[in-house]
Design a protein around this nucleic acid. Structure first.
Length: 426
RNA sequence: GGUGAGGUGGGUGAGUGGCUGAAACCACCGGUUUGCUAAACCGGCGUACUCUCAAAGGGGUACCGCGGGUUCGAAUCCCGCCCUCACCGCCA
């Protein structure tokens, strides 16, 4: 969420940002509406504060008069108070409406894209920041997609998942399960080696946490909700990891804070079916290792670069062909100022699969999180938050299986072998 | 699930209707001094919104788990909710 103060001081920048996100001129008008409502809010608040102050002063007088026993004067003052209260009540009602509307509009305004974010509407317009220059995997014509490979080698089973839970809940078994666990360990080791603190977090969060990282209210439908206890299954480890620092005021010297964590991720994401979401490409439950950084505003862009490097490094070690794209305005997430997506090429499906998304949110998240830091002069500022997948397992699994299939079996990348304990799936 | 206790500033903790935005201590920051990895002393030390000011600063309001109520006035009284802790029950 953007601060009104920021919108007021940077009105044109905000509007340009919305334009880049393909908002129509009418839609962009809400920016002016916000400023207007805020003016209203201020003037109402100011009036109310004055009235409250008046009551406070009178009350203090009464305190004094009571002690000296001047009851008549006390009664006189008391008599004047109901009408002040009446005014306050009116202002409260008015102010409540203004505030609610203001809040609603503010929640609907997305983050301002960075200058480097290319204009555009769909993923077609994304800018290929780093293309794959190495060799492409060459597979025979009869190469199989991962869901068929899984069946042939008994690695995971969707039908069984349906029996246990429902569609989109794969059951991994045998070497498939082992490979999944190996990848998790490998990713976590990569992250901790890079200086990230490992966190083992709860998989359910309360509403306050979901709200702070922006899943509520806008993405309520994407989360599984346990009604009885009012808890939400996390859609990503970003939620618990980032919320560790909700309502925290850091010291400048605490930066950077680097966290990593493995969690399963739960996504309802109803509505999209078909070939492109087949197999592991899109599921309700998948595993992911997330990296999160909290950073000083002066350094968050370098940090974004370093996170991109980290993910690249991990993919290099898995020997997967990938490219990095910078998302265009239309494809950019609501809360992000800039996002790099990593796409791994799957030779059997003959397409690029998104496996990681690394973003800088600037202060957009920290504003709702109330994640701040104190500078040398003791002034309080919002920190910057960043996060990225390093990496999402399901699609890595898919592309790994597909790209590494040989007539003899599926070959495990060398760096992963210490984690799997086998070099080939036969 | 049952019973009991409790939620106050970074921490410990005082405070049961006005002089309390909140004692004291610890931590932290600044300074003085002492020849020794430290002590003593002095000073400072919440957040948000807002008004004013060129700025430094000054003023106002709100916040003592959350929401509501009583009252001229609430951290303090009343109601509802949430959470934490302890013990019992159940259990990986």
């Amino acid at each position: 969420m953007l601060k009104v103060k920021y919108i007021r001081n940077n009105t044109e920048i905000v509007k340009k940002g919305l334009l880049k996100r393909n908002w129509s001129p009418e839609e962009i008008n809400i920016v002016d509406e916000v400023l207007l409502l805020d003016e209203k809010r201020k003037s109402i608040q100011h009036k109310k504060d004055q009235l409250l102050s008046e009551i406070k002063t009178l009350s203090k007088q009464i305190g004094g008069l009571m002690q000296s026993g001047k009851k008549e004067q006390v009664e006189q003052i008391k008599a004047s108070i109901p009408q002040i209260k009446k005014q306050i009540k009116t202002l409260d009602e008015e102010g409540g409406q203004v505030y609610a509307k203001l809040e609603e509009l503010l929640l609907s305004i997305p983050n301002v894209p960075h200058d480097l974010v290319p204009p555009g509407k769909t993923e077609e317009d994304n800018y290929v920041y780093k293309d794959w220059t190495g060799p492409m995997p060459e597979l025979p014509e009869d190469a199989l997609p991962h869901w068929e490979l899984a069946e042939r080698y008994g690695l995971f089973d969707f039908k069984l998942g349906v029996k246990l839970t429902g569609s989109g809940f794969p059951v991994y078994r045998g070497k498939g399960a082992r490979l999944e666990r190996a990848l998790i360990n490998f990713f976590l080791d990569q992250a901790t080696t890079a200086g990230y603190e490992e966190i083992w977090a709860p998989l359910m969060v309360n509403a306050a946490s979901a709200r702070a990282t922006g899943q509520l209210p806008d993405k309520e439908g994407q989360m599984y909700h346990i009604c009885k206890d009012d808890l939400y299954m996390i859609p990503t480890a970003e939620v618990p990891l980032t919320n560790i620092y909700r309502d925290v005021i850091l010291k400048e010297t605490d930066f950077p804070i680097k966290l990593t964590g493995y969690t399963p991720c739960f996504r309802r994401e109803a509505g999209s079916y078909g070939a492109h979401v087949k197999g592991l490409n899109r599921v309700h439950q998948f595993d992911k290792v997330e990296i999160v950084q909290l950073q000083h505003p002066d350094h968050s862009w370098e940090t974004l670069d370093s996170m991109v490097k980290h993910v690249s490094h991990v993919l290099d070690r898995l020997e997967l062909p990938y490219r990095i794209v910078r998302l265009c305005g239309g494809d950019l997430g609501f809360t992000s100022a800039m996002t790099y997506d990593f796409e791994v090429y799957s030779a059997a499906q003959k397409k690029w699969l998104e496996v990681s998304s690394v973003s800088n949110f600037l202060t957009f998240q920290s504003n709702r999180l109330k994640l701040r830091f104190k500078d040398k002069e003791g002034k309080i500022h919002l920190a910057h938050t960043l996060n990225g997948s390093a990496l999402a397992l399901a699609r890595i699994m898919a592309s790994l299986l597909e790209n590494n299939q040989t007539p003899k079996g599926i070959v495990i990348p060398e760096k992963l072998r210490p984690f799997t304990g086998f070099d080939i799936i036969q």
